[in-house]
């Protein structure tokens, strides 16, 4: 409380930090007269502050034993995982040597490829290697995807240069590894002619 006539003094006291706000300061230390934790303020009543529970003190032997068990368990788990995955126990000096399927991405890739098949030819040509791999490996005889393959074949034949020949070579590789659907059969001869011409010209 402060007197209205001393308002100027009150502001000054606030600036100088002489005015104390009411409320419970959680950072305040326990008063010297405070009851120990666990003691009831009133006889028969609950304690003001719960008794502090000290954690179990670990002996040095216990800590060392727990650490040793952890190391053994980790090593055993690593051996089991390695054996299950067919790895040798020796170090693998070259990272990325492990085969890993990406099935969760196949559906996304197929969806993206179907969009690309009927989308901008620039995108199709830009990512044609990925597109061709997805179609060959996971596309089956999907009409939409092979429509994109046919568009790539048209592009390769129209280009007629190194870019077209590279695409033609990859498309022919697909034909040699698997039977293409009927829509692509008419491209085989002209694509092969393009590749042969480019090789002869080198």
């Amino acid at each position: 409380m402060h007197d209205g006539d001393d308002e100027g003094d009150f502001d000054e006291d606030v600036r100088e930090g002489k005015v104390f706000r009411t409320g419970i300061d959680p950072q305040a230390e326990r008063a010297w007269y405070a009851l120990p934790p666990g003691c009831a303020a009133l006889e028969g009543g609950p304690p003001e502050q719960p008794e502090e529970v000290h954690g179990t003190r670990w002996s040095r032997r216990t800590i060392l034993g727990a650490g040793l068990l952890g190391v053994i368990g980790f090593a055993a788990g690593a051996v089991v995982v390695g054996l299950r995955e067919g790895r040798s126990l020796g170090p693998s000096p070259i990272p990325g040597d492990r085969m890993r399927e990406v099935p969760e991405r196949i559906a996304v890739l197929l969806r993206g490829c179907r969009t690309m098949a009927r989308g901008a030819i620039d995108d199709l040509v830009y990512s044609h290697q990925t597109f061709i791999w997805v179609v060959e490996s996971h596309g089956g005889d999907d009409e939409d995807l092979w429509y994109g393959i046919c568009r790539l074949a048209d592009y390769a034949l129209l280009d007629g240069a190194a870019r077209g020949a590279a695409i033609a070579e990859q498309l022919l590789g697909v034909c040699h590894r698997r039977a293409p659907p009927p829509c692509f059969l008419r491209y085989r001869v002209p694509l092969q002619r393009l590749v042969d011409t480019k090789r002869a010209g080198k």
Partner: peptide
């Protein structure tokens, strides 16, 4: 990145360092 081998159904994943 992924290693795509023509004719393989699996794409080998490689994590760059």
């Amino acid at each position: 990145v992924y290693i795509l081998v023509p004719g393989d159904k699996e794409a080998r994943a490689v994590k760059l360092d």
